[in-house]
């Protein structure tokens, strides 16, 4: 049996309300709320980035796994906001965990799919018998240009998963990836903010790949939506994953546990992995979970997970995802937010 042996998520405490952003740009907050189903989003402090959030989430995963970090054979971090352009995120994470020096490290990039990609490869190593444990992380502190639609959603968070073949808490039953070349969202070299193709990010991009991946994965697994206790999709806003779940035939009860984006925003590489983390916090043995990520450019990774008898015994060993989202929030003004996200031009 190969799957997740430990998992964890991390969410910064800072939040900014959608109204606070809309007020600055003269936008209709109610229209954005209706259109995108977004209410607030997480914001990293100036001392938080992909490295710090990854270390925290990975430590939660190690606690739940109950393993010696020195036995982790691979550390893969998926993100589109790695703090360095040249110098790995993963080496620092591995050092902080105590996984060095016998460890394979790589940083992954594929827009919002980099997290599930790192999970996919980490699990493949374990499945191939090449290593006992492998860590896959999705984390981002992505930027949205001031006044752009992305500014209402781009947020911060991370989720980490240690894959292994013993003491598994969620077995991976099936995987599938669906990719095409679709230019819906990008950031060129040396550009600070990404750009997107507006409505083109919807049907030909997010929905085509999410439906394509989910449909084929369920065919491969000979399963139907009613066979799953939970589903989680990539969450660029609140509306897209809700619509995807509905069109694929999932009920609100199946999708709402992992649906974090209305109050979290889009954590990019962290989005569907964090939804999975929230589901694993409450899932019961035997529950099946459909997870489908989406990364612009474009592709989706799909997983069918099944919770094991061990899962309930680890759920409370580390901070859970929903309480991090719901409790101890600090609301920022737009000025604080602009300072924290380095949106203010300063003399050098």
């Amino acid at each position: 049996m190969v799957g997740i042996v430990g998992y964890g998520a991390y969410i910064p405490r800072n939040r900014i309300k959608l109204e606070t952003i809309a007020e600055v740009w003269g936008a209709d907050a109610e229209a954005y709320k209706r259109g995108l189903m977004l209410y607030e989003k997480s914001v990293p402090s100036p001392d938080q980035d992909v490295i710090t959030m990854t270390v925290e989430a990975a430590r939660h995963a190690v606690k739940r796994a109950g393993i010696d970090p020195a036995e982790i054979g691979a550390v893969y971090v998926g993100s589109e906001s790695h703090p360095y352009a040249v110098k790995p995120t993963g080496t620092l994470v591995a050092e902080a965990l105590g996984a060095t020096p016998s460890v394979h490290v790589a940083d992954f990039e594929f827009a919002c799919k980099a997290g599930s990609e790192s999970m996919f490869v980490a699990m493949s190593h374990v499945k191939a018998g090449e290593m006992k444990y492998a860590l896959g992380v999705g984390a981002d502190t992505s930027q949205g240009a001031p006044g752009d639609a992305l500014e209402y959603s781009a947020s911060a968070g991370s989720a980490a998963f240690i894959m292994g073949a013993e003491q598994v808490v969620a077995e991976c039953l099936h995987t599938y990836s669906f990719c095409t070349d679709t230019p819906d969202f990008w950031r060129r070299e040396y550009q600070f903010y990404p750009q997107h193709a507006g409505r083109f990010t919807g049907e030909p991009a997010y929905f085509k790949h999410t439906y394509g991946c989910a449909t084929r994965l369920m065919e491969m697994a000979s399963m139907k939506p009613e066979d799953f206790a939970y589903c989680v999709f990539h969450q660029p806003n609140g509306k897209f994953p809700a619509n995807a779940a509905k069109k694929l035939g999932f009920t609100k009860a199946q999708s709402e546990t992992g649906w974090l984006s209305p109050w979290l925003g889009n954590t990019y590489s962290g989005a569907s992995p964090m939804g999975l983390s929230a589901i694993l916090d409450v899932a019961k043995p035997g529950d099946k979970i459909l997870m489908v990520s989406y990364g612009s450019g474009s592709g989706s990774d799909g997983f069918v997970w099944q919770a094991t008898e061990r899962l309930p015994s680890v759920q409370k060993l580390a901070p859970q995802t929903r309480p991090q989202l719901d409790d101890n929030k600090v609301y920022l003004s737009y000025g604080q937010y602009a300072k924290y996200r380095e949106k203010i031009k300063r003399a050098k």
Partner: peptide, 25 residues
């Protein structure tokens, strides 16, 4: 204890990480 960025060497130098403390609530 939480893992945080402590300081950075200007705009082009290395980033330095370490521990800070946060309320345990």
């Amino acid at each position: 204890i939480e893992f945080r960025k402590i300081q950075q060497d200007g705009h082009a130098g290395i980033l330095m990480y370490g521990y800070k403390v946060v309320p345990n609530s």
